[in-house]
Design a binder for these strands. Structure first.
Length: 487
RNA sequence: GGCCCCAUCGUCUAGGCUGGUCUAGGACACCGCCCUUUCACGGCGGCGACACGGGUUCAAAUCCCGUUGGGGCUACCA
């Protein structure tokens, strides 16, 4: 049994797109599931659109996603690896040309001297008259004549045979195409550069790719590729054309949209394992029914192409949020803590003033509440900066009422009386005060929260007060009391 | 225009191949209740779909045809 070899072949003409990431992920997961090899190949033949900066950007995307490859070119900071290289298409031109010329020599391709204008005119006429395009006259040219004129400007076209082409697709089933729909396509440009179709086929064959898993925008192209595989005497790989990723409106996920760049999700506080989990679910259903939450390792074990979906799916941010929250909750506290500290630091807060134990407590208190890592900022900013303003609504409800000042005064006294300051002692003190005065706990908690944080929502009050410390808490309470006097 | 692919709750989907067990199951979102100092988490419940039209059949979400809608290809881009 030959081992599985699959690949992702991105064109480094921008950042790592979410759609490319899906295809990479499916290939990668499939390779990992089967114990096969995952190859990265850069399709950088279009020099105008390729840029080393994009190579770096894409590498960052893959790295963050934790999608690693077994063979590939030097990519970003990664060194090259693999024996079937080079893995940059631009360095494989000679191989492509060799294949093209071989087809020419075998009479399976021909030199075409038609002008672009004539070709365009015929294409237009054919469309208007609702007929297939006429065969190019060069097709009938004596190969010897073509050989003679080879210094003239020309392209090399593949001679599509008559009949039908069938592509066996893992996802789409067998797709049959009338070869008349595929007119003799160009395989070598006038400057000798290969066209995409030739390059992929040659590279996939030479790199011994067994499974071509890619977007269904290539489904029609697959017929051309199969023809080329056959003509070149290469074994056809197994094809699987996956639906592309749609945005929330059901349109193709545009490059311009926020979230199109995989790193947007990193910057927005998402976990790579959550994104991977989500995207995998976007086109694959676990055999185990009613299960959605998977770690990367679990995904690698469960992933099966029998359950790949044929229909396109929209990207639903809300569901990703939920999954992200689930993954955050599943995270080891120490790991979560490290990520949260980094985010707070990045937000400009002086994290050095707190110690490790303090952050451990903060993490413990917030782990259940986060759906994205970045939410830690709004959840805990008041620990790092003074409360300078109070939310309007809770001020009205808690402070702009009869007896608010008296209550605050009582609460301050109550706090002052707490000797060993922590969540339990403070809570006990509040309970005691409540019993004494007959005021409900909620009536005391909310004004206190407002004074300590300026907000109406946040971590548990006693927990956050513990974290804030007695002194700071009291200072803020007194400040709140002063504020009440101005109302 | 031609050709190809797709079509179940708002969204992701199960079921379809091997019609009856589907008055269509789950998840997210939404709504309500419970838990609760807030928010979140968790628990319970609710709302909510087989695109449309024909056909085959005793019986169709499931099979066939058509229509509509969406996507793709139709390059000397990848």
């Amino acid at each position: 049994m030959s081992t599985v070899r699959c690949r992702i072949a991105p064109s480094p003409s921008g950042f790592l797109h979410i759609g490319t990431a899906k295809m990479a992920l499916f290939n990668w997961l499939y390779a990992r599931k089967t114990g096969g090899t995952f190859v990265l190949r850069l399709e950088d033949t279009d020099a105008e659109r390729t840029d080393e900066a994009f190579v770096q950007a894409m590498c960052e995307g893959f790295k963050w996603l934790r999608v690693d490859w077994d063979e590939g070119p030097a990519f970003g900071e990664e060194g090259p690896r693999g024996d079937l290289g080079p893995y940059r298409q631009s360095e494989r031109k000679a191989l492509h040309q060799e294949a093209g010329l071989r087809l020419l020599a075998e009479g399976k391709a021909y030199r075409c001297f038609c002008s672009k204008e004539d070709l365009d005119a015929e294409r237009e006429a054919a469309q208007k008259e609702k007929r297939h395009r006429k065969k190019c006259p060069c097709r009938l040219l004596d190969p010897a004549e073509g050989e003679q004129r080879k210094d003239e400007q020309h392209t090399v076209r593949f001679m599509v045979p008559e009949g039908h082409t069938e592509v066996a697709d893992l996802v789409q089933g067998t797709v049959k195409t009338d070869n008349r729909e595929l007119d003799d396509f160009v395989i070598l440009k006038p400057n000798g550069d290969p066209i995409f179709h030739l390059a992929v086929v040659v590279d996939d064959a030479l790199m011994q790719i067994t499974h071509v898993i890619r977007g269904d925008d290539h489904l029609t192209n697959a017929a051309r590729h199969v023809l080329l595989f056959d003509a070149l005497g290469y074994e056809r790989p197994q094809f699987a054309h996956l639906p592309m990723v749609l945005d929330d409106k059901g349109k193709k996920f545009s490059k311009r949209l926020h979230g199109a760049n995989v790193l947007d999700w990193r910057d927005d506080g998402y976990l790579p394992e959550a994104l991977i989990n989500y995207v995998a679910l976007l086109g694959w259903t676990p055999a185990e029914e009613n299960r959605e939450l998977f770690t990367i390792e679990e995904l690698q074990a469960a992933f099966a192409p029998e359950r790949w979906s044929k229909s396109a799916a929209r990207f639903d941010r809300k569901k990703l949020d939920w999954l992200n929250g689930q993954h955050i909750r599943a995270l080891e506290p120490a790991k979560l803590q490290a990520r949260l500290v980094a985010i707070l630091k990045g937000a400009g807060f002086d994290t050095a003033q707190k110690d490790d134990a303090w952050f451990a407590t903060l993490t413990e208190v917030c782990q259940e509440k986060l759906s994205t890592l970045n939410q830690i900022v709004e959840l805990s900013d008041f620990f790092f900066q003074e409360v300078t303003e109070y939310e309007e609504k809770p001020v009205k409800k808690q402070w702009q009422v009869e007896g608010a000042a008296e209550l605050m005064t009582q609460l301050i006294a109550c706090m002052e009386g707490v000797e060993d300051w922590n969540r339990d002692t403070l809570k006990a003190a509040y309970h005691a005060l409540g019993e004494e005065t007959g005021v409900g706990l909620g009536k005391m908690v909310h004004p206190t929260r407002l004074a300590l944080t300026g907000k109406s929502i946040g971590p548990g009050l006693f927990e956050l007060a513990e974290l804030l410390g007695k002194e700071t808490s009291l200072t803020r309470m007194r400040k709140g009391l002063e504020y009440i006097a101005t109302l």
